[in-house]
Design a protein around this nucleic acid. Sequence first.
DNA 1: TTCCATGAGCGAACACCGTTCTATCAGCAA
DNA 2: TTGCTGATAGAACGGTGTTCGCTCATGGAA
Lengths: 238, 238
Amino acid sequence: MTEAIPTPPWQTPRKPPPRQPLSQELIVRAALRVLDAEGLDGLSMRRLAQELETGPASLYAHVANKDELLDLVYDMVLSEVEIPEPDPDRWAEQVKEYLRSLRKVFRSHRDLARVSLSRIPLGPNGVVGMERTMALLRAGGLPDDIAAYAGDLVTSFVTTETLDDAFPTGDTDTGTVQAYVAQIRDYLTSLPPQRFPHLVQMAGPITSLDSERRFELGMEIIVRGLSTYARPGGARPQ
Amino acid sequence: MTEAIPTPPWQTPRKPPPRQPLSQELIVRAALRVLDAEGLDGLSMRRLAQELETGPASLYAHVANKDELLDLVYDMVLSEVEIPEPDPDRWAEQVKEYLRSLRKVFRSHRDLARVSLSRIPLGPNGVVGMERTMALLRAGGLPDDIAAYAGDLVTSFVTTETLDDAFPTGDTDTGTVQAYVAQIRDYLTSLPPQRFPHLVQMAGPITSLDSERRFELGMEIIVRGLSTYARPGGARPQ
DNA sequence: TTCCATGAGCGAACACCGTTCTATCAGCAA
DNA sequence: TTGCTGATAGAACGGTGTTCGCTCATGGAA
């Protein structure tokens, strides 16, 4: 390390910090960092500017507004999703592999499901993902209109199923969630049985499914439903 | 009706407007009015107070916070949902009737789908709805754990499918939406066909489904998937 | 080499937001 | 009539996304 020499007073201090300049990519990466650490509610333009050691107004030179920024964050994360190369013999299992990967990515970035809500992923990574998804769904012999809709359906499914999931390593620990669920179960069982016979009987099943099994069950239901639309021949029309 | 008599001028006008005092129900009804008229983004505590000709602070005497207020609004609206009395022979069709009613209610109140997101309807109307839903789903012979999850699944389905739907009589007219969809289709068809063969081929199917047919198709997929779990005997275990 | 246009950087401000503090005031029990 | 309690509401607090307008470095043209 070279010794830090105090600048002579007569020399006007040029470029005090040789910080690398802002760029869109730098901003998006920082936004994802803040999102992971503090969630969507913690991600404000001011907080993001602070993370980059600048002012909020500076961000608007590289990003139109917060909504566009979230579009970019979403697209960046989509690059982490793995979509299998289609093998028609393993169609159902491959669709599930795809959905599990999607879920894993959504759960590994806090509040990402909220970000993805009502956002159509048309960024560079988004279209690549769509292309591969369509390839996979068609390989199962789904007609084009069914496959097109199925892409949306499964994405929406993963999104909603991931919405309330706690951040895996977050501090919204499982204890709090369990206590809340137990409260609901107690409430349901305490209802008058003559007016709410089904709820009282089903208080158990309603409150006992953990997020893992919910997801697997939902996937199975949707995949079974989709399978009924598959042409018998598979990918190629006989 | 008794004739309205003008107040004599020498009588000091006490209680200039005989406004009825605030109450929780009055506030919730007003909130629904503002929501219908101006959407969720337009519903602020200040705007709501203005609607009731008072100040924002006054609302907090009857409602803990905005979140609880939205809980109450959501529950109020749930009373409009119609859930058929179970007839095991018509199970699949009845489930669809229920979902169509749910969709109709969600679409008839602007941004209600957004309000319902990650909100568990446990208010007075919510539990009644849950009870009837469980009755209906079980009547098809679904095992309890499947029926319990299916209730969540179909609600989430209707919610996400209704999220981006324009308000039926709103000013986000179909023209704007159609233009946006056309833009997407043009973009997809303009992609390099060697790298995006499926997207180019499916640009049509992807962008041609209107919300009505999307909904009907999604329902059918889910109902078919659920049917595969039904016990052959129907409601009663043989 | 000089000049100037361009655009990034950024402090300050605007118009909002949900919520709380605090003071006032009406209605009612004693 | 007094005293208390709870509804009412103005003002303020600490936040939000975004814009205004100024400074200043940089790069291309002359």
